[in-house]
Amino acid sequence: MDLTRLPRSFGATLPDWVLEELTHSPTVLPTHADRMELALRLAARNPLEGSGGPFAALVVDTATGELVSAGVNLVLSSGLSAAHAEITALSLAQTRIGDWDLGATGAPDRELVVNWRPCAQCYGAVLWSGVKRLVIAGEGPEVEHLTGFDEGPMREDWAEQLRRRGVEVVIGVRREQAVSMFAEYGRVAVERGLTVYNARGGA
């Protein structure tokens, strides 16, 4: 085997259009509704730009509302199955502060804002990231029914497990808006032939 051909790095890059969206948004988002509004706007645009699925996430300073990072699902544009919105946002926040622990001693409390409950993969990422709060638009089968994505096996007491580990969970911020966005994505995906990726069964 030629070891020089083995990859030694991997990564994903936030598309320029995300920064364009952020230039039209305040950098301080005072309320959960404000934060979710931005996440939903990014999530709705993401599949139309070819980056990945209709998912976005923000890391926000809980007390001040300052935006620390923003991420969208980059699975299609990066070719990496792990490049979900939560992973992207958490990784960019960790890169920005120069620390893997977003909840280190002396650091401000930070929260992750996502336009639906994290999938099985991102649930673990939230757990290990150090964020002190998870804010989601909703939970339930709507995402899978409306979009065709597989969110993976999640234990029923997932929120309680996070709370036991010091992560506050807020559910139901702009839920109806999120469900409407997923329904619209499902319609557009069929009309335009957008890729709904699933390694176990295709689109």
Rank of each mutant, 00 (worst) to 15 (best):
P108F: 09
T31V: 10
E184S: 12
G186R: 10
E168N: 08
G53L: 13
R165T: 03
V114Q: 08
A33K: 07
A107W: 02
R200L: 15
E168F: 08
T88I: 15
R35Q: 15
L76I: 12
A189N: 05
L112Y: 11
S91E: 13
P47Q: 07
R45I: 11
Q177G: 03
L3S: 02
E49N: 00
E111M: 15
A183V: 06
L127A: 08
A189T: 04
T105A: 14
V113I: 14
G98S: 03
L127F: 13
S78C: 13
N198D: 15
R200G: 15
A83Y: 01
A199Y: 02
R117Y: 11
V167S: 03
V68W: 00
Q177I: 08
N198E: 08
E66H: 08
C122D: 08
G140R: 03
P108D: 07
G71P: 01
F10E: 08
A56G: 10
V114N: 09
G65H: 06
R110Q: 15
G52S: 01
E37A: 15
V196A: 01
N198P: 00
A107I: 00
E144C: 03
E86W: 09
N115D: 14
A85T: 01
V18S: 12
S9P: 03
P15M: 02
V135R: 03
G11S: 11
E168Q: 14
M181A: 12
V190D: 09
G172F: 02
Q161H: 11
R175S: 10
L42T: 05
L3E: 09
M1P: 07
R187A: 13
I136M: 15
S180R: 14
E176S: 05
G79E: 02
V196G: 01
V60P: 05
L146M: 10
A33N: 05
V135N: 05
V18Q: 10
V167K: 07
V28I: 12
L38P: 08
S9W: 11
V188E: 14
V113N: 11
V167M: 07
G166K: 06
R192M: 03
A56Q: 03
G166D: 04
Q94G: 15
C119E: 03
P141M: 00
A178N: 07
A125D: 13
W100V: 13
T23A: 15
V170K: 08
A89D: 05
W128N: 02
T23K: 15
L162Q: 08
L29D: 03
G98V: 09
G52D: 02
S78R: 12
E66R: 13
A44S: 10
D16F: 06
E176K: 02
G53S: 06
G103R: 03
Q94Y: 06
H145C: 04
E168I: 06
V114I: 12
